[in-house]
Simulated scan of single mutants.
Amino acid sequence: MGYGSGELIIRSYNAQNDRVRVEGLESICEVGPADKPFLFTDTLGDPICRIKNSPIYNMLVAELGGQLVGVIQGTIKLVTLHKPPKNVAKVGYILGLRVAPAYRRHGIGSRLVTKLEEWFVACDVDYTYMATEKDNEASYKLFVNKLGYVKFRTPAILVNPVNHHRSSQISSNFKLTKLKIEEAESLYRKYLSSTEFFPIDIGNILRNKLSLGTWVSYPKGETWGKVPTSWAMLSVWNSGELFKLRLGNVPISCFMYTKSSQLIQKFLPCFKLPSIPDFFNPFGFYFIYGVYGEGPLYGKLVKSLCNFVHNMASSRPKDCKVIVTEIGGNDTRSKLHIPHRKSMSCSEDLWCIKSLKNEDRKSVHKLTTVPPTRALFVDPREV
């Protein structure tokens, strides 16, 4: 395809030569549909920050006429995936696709995806997948209509703003315990190793410095040494250490409301009005992952754990302004009890998948038709 400004060159990212240019591209590329409020990503001087904690990763850049006009990132890992005849698959995850606004609709995005898929094939990847907003028409057309991806799962993204002026209540009927890393790994392997997209290297995730810990909650009067009648668990990842987000394309009325709510909360706390965080300046967030539990009190126990995470975040205003959780689309039990602001959340994120091996192409249909497991493990390294 001719691009008018010379030959399109796609190559691996070189930190020394490309870092500043990639940061410049990120600063002008919004994340999400352009006709709605969108997010800008601040990588804090490290363009590969979102992938460098993964077992295997790569970043490609596109150059045209000496200008850097596009980037894409990919990671590779082993996960549990219900597919015959084995239960484990090597999957490649696509993220961070950006094309400079002036160069869109010229096939650069599809060329970047195709080149990344070639790298996946060279690494013997079984399936590649990506995530996008369900109403992101441009992304859907590119991956599904043009590149052969199919809809796979629709997780729910739950977002809860952090109120730095008020603590969340934790029931005195429950006990919270922080697990040792070895205990958390054993628990995840016991209860979640058969769920979709459970990473085989869960121990590396739990030992990463960005993982703040794993906590369990159970009724007082019972002991953790003997499995309680009801229990819940979750882990927390500090994404704000890697990159920051900033909101754009927001109506002035929303901006004024945010500022006024913060002033009321600061000077008139007796009114007990909810304060909206300042999303117009760069902000970080905590990501809750590995949510699971059992028993009749599971919902209340999950809520107590989420309230604990909120209180932990509220003591660190520079690190965290929102708490994000992503759960399986059919995990209604968790969704009912995880605190979240409906207006800020996404009831259906869209995951799409594609087989990279001829022998597995028929199994993609089976993967998309088999009912999903209730729990869906979302790797915090890919957020």
Rank of each mutant, 00 (worst) to 15 (best):
R166A: 12
R166L: 10
Q169S: 13
Q169I: 12
I170Y: 06
I170N: 03
I170F: 07
N173R: 13
F174V: 13
F174A: 10
F174L: 01
K175T: 15
K178I: 05
K178W: 01
K178G: 01
L179A: 08
L179E: 08
K180Q: 13
E182Y: 04
A184L: 07
S186K: 13
S186L: 11
S186R: 12
Y188F: 15
R189E: 10
Y191E: 13
L192R: 00
S193L: 06
S193P: 06
S194D: 13
T195E: 11
F198G: 03
P199H: 02
P199W: 05
D201V: 06
I202S: 07
G203W: 03
G203V: 02
I205F: 05
I205G: 05
R207I: 00
N208E: 09
L210E: 11
L210H: 14
S211K: 00
G213V: 03
G213R: 02
G213M: 07
T214V: 11
W215N: 06
W215D: 03
V216P: 00
S217F: 02
S217H: 04
S217P: 03
S217C: 15
P219V: 01
P219T: 01
K220I: 11
E222Q: 15
E222I: 01
E222F: 04
G225Y: 03
G225I: 05
G225L: 05
K226E: 14
P228L: 05
P228K: 01
T229D: 10
T229P: 02
S230E: 00
A232H: 08
A232W: 02
A232F: 04
A232G: 08
M233N: 01
L234G: 03
L234S: 06
L234F: 08
S235M: 07
V236K: 06
W237P: 02
N238G: 02
N238V: 02
G240D: 04
L242S: 14
F243L: 14
K244H: 14
K244D: 10
L245W: 14
L245M: 12
R246C: 09
L247C: 08
P251V: 05
I252D: 11
I252W: 12
S253D: 07
C254E: 12
C254V: 15
M256N: 11
T258P: 03
K259S: 12
S261K: 09
Q262W: 05
Q262L: 08
Q262T: 02
L263R: 07
Q265Y: 06
Q265H: 10
K266E: 13
K266V: 00
L268G: 01
L268D: 04
L268S: 08
P269F: 06
F271S: 07
K272I: 09
L273Q: 12
L273T: 12
P274H: 08
P274C: 09
S275L: 06
S275F: 01
I276Q: 11
P277D: 08
D278R: 00
F279K: 10
F280E: 02
N281R: 15
N281D: 10
P282F: 03
F285Y: 15
F285D: 09
F287R: 11
I288N: 03
Y289W: 14
G290Q: 06
V291G: 05
V291Y: 01
V291M: 07
V291I: 13
V291K: 01
Y292S: 09
Y292I: 13
Y292E: 08
E294K: 10
E294M: 09
E294S: 13
E294A: 11
G295M: 04
